[in-house]
Amino acid sequence: MSNLKQFYPSFRLLPSGGLFSAAHKKYFIWFCAFWVFIAVLEFGQDYISSVLQDNTFRIGESLSYKLFWPLFIPFFIALDYGLAKADEALSGVWYVCALILQTVVITFIHLLVFSLILFGVSILIHDNPMTLLFLLYEKLSSRLYIALSIYSTLSVLSVFLKSRRSREGVQAKVQPKTITVKNGRSAVLVEIADIKWISSDGGYLDIHTDNQKHVILDSLKNIIQTLPENFKRIHKSTIVNIARIKKLQSRGNGDYDVILDDDRELRLSRNYTKELRGNLL
Rank of each mutant, 00 (worst) to 15 (best):
M1E: 03
M1A: 10
N3G: 01
Q6I: 12
F7L: 15
F7K: 11
Y8R: 03
R12L: 07
R12V: 07
L13T: 08
G17V: 01
G18I: 06
S21R: 02
A23I: 00
K26S: 11
I29V: 13
W30I: 10
F31E: 00
F31M: 00
V40P: 03
L41W: 02
E42N: 15
G44Y: 03
Q45D: 12
I48R: 14
I48P: 02
T56A: 11
G60K: 06
E61H: 06
S62L: 00
K66V: 02
L67W: 09
L67K: 06
F68N: 01
W69Q: 00
W69C: 01
P70I: 10
P74W: 12
A78L: 15
L79R: 02
Y81Q: 13
Y81K: 13
Y81R: 14
A84K: 11
A86D: 10
D87G: 08
E88A: 14
E88I: 09
S91M: 05
S91G: 08
G92C: 05
V93M: 07
C97S: 08
L99A: 15
Q102L: 15
Q102S: 12
F108E: 12
I109V: 15
S115K: 10
L116C: 13
L116I: 14
F119D: 05
S122N: 13
S122Q: 08
P129Q: 04
L135S: 03
L136Q: 12
L136G: 12
S142E: 08
L144R: 05
Y145H: 14
I146D: 09
L148K: 03
I150E: 11
S152D: 01
K162M: 15
S163D: 13
S163T: 14
E168R: 13
V170C: 07
Q171D: 15
K173Y: 15
V174S: 15
T180C: 14
V181K: 02
S186G: 03
S186L: 06
V188C: 12
E191K: 14
I192F: 10
K196D: 04
K196A: 04
Y204H: 11
L205R: 07
D206G: 01
D206F: 05
D210I: 01
N211L: 04
Q212H: 06
Q212L: 03
K213N: 09
V215P: 00
V215K: 11
I216G: 05
I216L: 03
L220K: 08
K221L: 09
I224D: 02
T226N: 10
K232R: 11
R233G: 01
I234N: 06
I242H: 09
A243Y: 03
I245R: 00
K247D: 09
L248F: 11
S250E: 04
R251E: 10
R251G: 00
D261H: 07
D261E: 12
D262W: 01
D262C: 02
D262M: 00
D262L: 01
D263H: 09
D263L: 09
E265I: 15
L266V: 05
S269F: 06
Y272S: 08
K274Y: 08
L276C: 09
L276D: 10
R277H: 10
L280V: 05
L281Y: 02
L281M: 06
